[in-house]
Amino acid sequence: MISIKGVQKWFGRLHVLKGIDMNIAEGEVLVLIGASGSGKSTLLRCMNGLEKIQEGHISVDGLDIQASKTNLNKVRQEIGIVFQQFNLFPHMTVLKNITISPTKVKGISKSDAHITAEKLLERIGIPEKANVYPDQLSGGQQQRVAIARALAMNPKVMLFDEPTSALDPEMIKEVLDLMRELAKENMTMVVVTHEMGFAREVADRIAFMDDGVIVELGTPQQFFENPQHDRTRQFIHKVLQA
């Protein structure tokens, strides 16, 4: 589904991705973990073209991301992304946030988009909030709306960029539960997160990144119980202690 080949990226003089190779299969849940500054968020953002890469190739569902602008807009309709800070549109109601892109980009009729949106709101458990503005929702609710907004485009892949990092502890669970459900429905997902419990339980594979390279890539069992690398061991030791 996603193929990443020899990806290198610099921010000015900073070399952030130093040759990444990876394939993500359809229906797979890949969790990217690593310390902050390891390049995991950057890699995720490269996957839908928010960041440009200087070398290498990324293609999603057979479409090359770097190839052209039209290609990029097309690919992006297939890739949903959920940000750490939700990034809902503050001047639109929840319903409008969810329906704006299907109607304006995909050209779906308003009534169809409304039906889909209402189903999604039902699913995320806040059907009564359709006509309120994002700031009247709790953080957890906002993030669930952001997920619904991405799902409304009917994407083939969902990217999650630290979706629970900006949330209060009591709201993390509601967002993770929703992501769990998505995983069960065989959605292809790439998740950057610090939630080790979630990674262990939901991930098909875990990729551990450090200093711009993937140090270790394997099943959760391998990763937590039998890590191959020192750096991985140190990292696991640190997070499990915390």
Partner: peptide
């Protein structure tokens, strides 16, 4: 800037991002 990113991630083009967001 994150608003532009969000709009682009939803597949909006330049004029759509400008006009709606």
């Amino acid at each position: 800037k994150t608003q532009i990113e969000a709009a682009q991630s939803l597949g909006m083009g330049y004029f759509q991002t400008m006009g709606y967001v």
